[in-house]
Design a protein around this nucleic acid. Structure first.
Lengths: 243, 243
DNA sequence: TGACTACAATGGTCAGGCCACCAACAGATA
DNA sequence: TATCTGTTGGTGGCCTGACCATTGTAGTCA
C-alpha cells in the first residue's frame, strides 16, 4: 500500500499568523511599516476576511501589530512594555506564588546592579543620586517612599544598559505591585520602623555602583532583596493569621 | 457648560476578552474547565459569533485557551512553555542583541543555582549527578556535549523548585539555541580544547549544590556563564571578521 | 454483544453587507 | 489670506446567516 502523507489540517488563521510572523522575523516587515489592508490580505491569501481578522487581532493582542481604526495596520515598535501583556497575565494566573516572582526579581536585579556598576552613564548615575537624596529628605515623612523605591529600581535597570533586562524587570515589578496592592499598606506600616535601614541599603547600592564596584553592588542588592523577601513573607503570614 | 463623559468606545472583541481574562484570574474559571460554546457565548453577550471567535482565538494563540474542534473550548493548563510563545517572538525581533539575552540567562541561572543548593530534592540531585557522570564519559567523543549541557542547565532549573524561574529559563535557552544554530558548529569546534574545563565547571557546580552550599553554587555558576559569554563573543567576532 | 452508522453538537470558514472612524481635500466664511 | 467646515474615499469593526469539518454518541443491525 502506498504511503499517504497526512493532509495538512491547520487552522487558516493560524497559517496566516505564521506567515506574518515570518515576514516580521525575516525583516521583510520592519517596525513602523504599514501592512496591506484586511481586504487586500484576504484577497491575496484567498481566504475570508474573518480569518484574516482573527490572525490580526491575535497579533494585536500579543503586542506585535498595532491596528488603527480607519487608518490601517502597522508593525508595532517594541516599546518599553513589549513583553508585559502576555507575561503579566501568566504571572497573575499563578496564585499564591508571590515567592516565585520575588525570586525572579532578585535574579534580575542582582545582575542589573552588577551591570550598572560596569556601564552606568554619568547621566543615569546623576539620576540615581538624585533619587537617593530625595529618599533621605523624605525619611521623616515617608510619603513618597513607595514611589521613590520604584524609581530607584527602575533607574538602576536602565543603568544596566540592557533593554531586555530592563523590560523584564518592569514586567515583574508591575506584577508584584498588582499582587501586593492589598498588602501594601500593611507592609509599609510594618516596616516603618526600618525605613532608615532601607534608605541606607539603597544609598549603599548607589555608592557601590558609583564606585564601579561590580561585585559589591551585586552583593548589596542581593542582601537588600533578601531582607525585603523575608519581611514580606512575615507580613503576609501575619496578615493571613489575622483572617 | 455641563461636563461630558467620554463615550466608551472599546472594541467588542476586546471587552469579551477582558471578561474571560477576568473570570480566569478571579478563579471562576479554573484550568481544565470547559467554557460555554461559541453560540451560547454570543447569545449571552449579545454579540455576534464572529466577535466571540476573535476574542477566543486571540486567547487561544496566546496559549490561555485550548480550542478543540467538535468538542469545545477549555482553559489551558499552563504547560512548561506557557510563556514561551510571546516571549521568544519578542526576543527574536531584537537582533544582534545576543549579549543581552546571555546576560538575562546569567541572571536567572545564578539565582537558580543558589536556590537549587537550598532546595534540591534527592531525586533531582541524583539526576544531576547522572548528567555529570555522562558528561565525563562523553568527554573523549564529545558527541552529546550540546545535549548534555542543555540537560544539565534545565535540570538545575527544575531543582530550583521555582516553576516560573524554570519556565523563563526554558524560554531564554530556547531563544539562544535558535539564535546560535548557525554559529554553534563554530563555537563547538573553537571550544573543543576546553571541553575538559567545561566538564569540571559543571561538576563543581553540581558538587556545590550537593553540598548545599548556596553562595558557592552561585559563584561557580556566575563564573561559568561569564566564561561562556566571553568565549562566545570571541567566536562571533572571529566569525564576523571572516565574512 | 459488538461493530457499524447516522445524527447532533460544536468549532471553522465563508460571503456580503452596513457602520464607525480617520485623513485629506475642497469649499465656505471671516 | 487664513481658518473653519462639510464631503468623500478608504479603512477597520461588527453583524448575519449559511455551509463545511470534526467529534462524540446514541441508535441500529448482524
Amino acid at each position: 500500500m502506498a504511503e499517504f502523507k497526512p493532509v495538512k489540517t491547520k487552522r487558516t488563521s493560524e497559517s496566516i499568523l505564521e506567515q506574518i510572523k515570518k515576514l516580521i522575523i525575516e525583516g521583510q516587515l520592519a517596525p513602523g511599516d504599514k501592512l496591506l489592508t484586511e481586504r487586500e490580505l484576504s484577497e491575496r491569501l484567498q481566504v475570508s476576511r474573518a480569518s484574516v481578522r482573527e490572525a490580526l487581532s491575535a497579533l494585536n493582542l500579543a503586542g506585535i501589530l498595532e491596528i488603527r481604526h480607519g487608518e490601517g495596520i502597522y508593525v508595532k515598535r517594541p516599546g518599553p512594555n513589549a513583553v508585559i501583556e502576555p507575561l503579566t497575565f501568566i504571572l497573575l494566573l499563578e496564585k499564591d506564588k508571590l515567592q516565585n516572582i520575588l525570586e525572579v526579581r532578585k535574579a534580575l536585579e542582582v545582575e542589573a546592579a552588577g551591570l550598572a556598576a560596569e556601564r552606568c552613564t554619568p547621566g543615569l548615575l546623576q539620576e540615581l543620586k538624585a533619587v537617593v537624596e530625595e529618599m533621605e529628605e523624605d525619611l521623616p515623612a515617608g510619603e513618597k517612599a513607595e514611589q521613590l523605591d520604584l524609581r530607584f529600581h527602575l533607574t538602576l535597570a536602565q543603568a544596566s544598559q540592557n533593554p531586555l533586562l530592563s523590560r523584564l524587570m518592569n514586567t515583574v515589578q508591575e506584577t508584584i505591585s498588582q499582587t501586593l496592592r492589598v498588602t501594601r499598606a500593611l507592609w509599609l506600616s510594618a516596616t516603618s520602623g526600618t525605613t532608615r535601614r532601607l534608605f541606607e541599603e539603597h544609598r549603599d547600592i548607589y555608592l557601590a555602583v558609583a564606585a564601579r564596584d561590580r561585585s559589591r553592588a551585586r552583593e548589596l542588592m542581593y542582601q537588600h532583596l533578601w531582607k525585603v523577601e523575608v519581611e514580606l513573607a512575615r507580613v503576609n503570614l501575619n496578615n493571613c493569621k489575622q483572617n
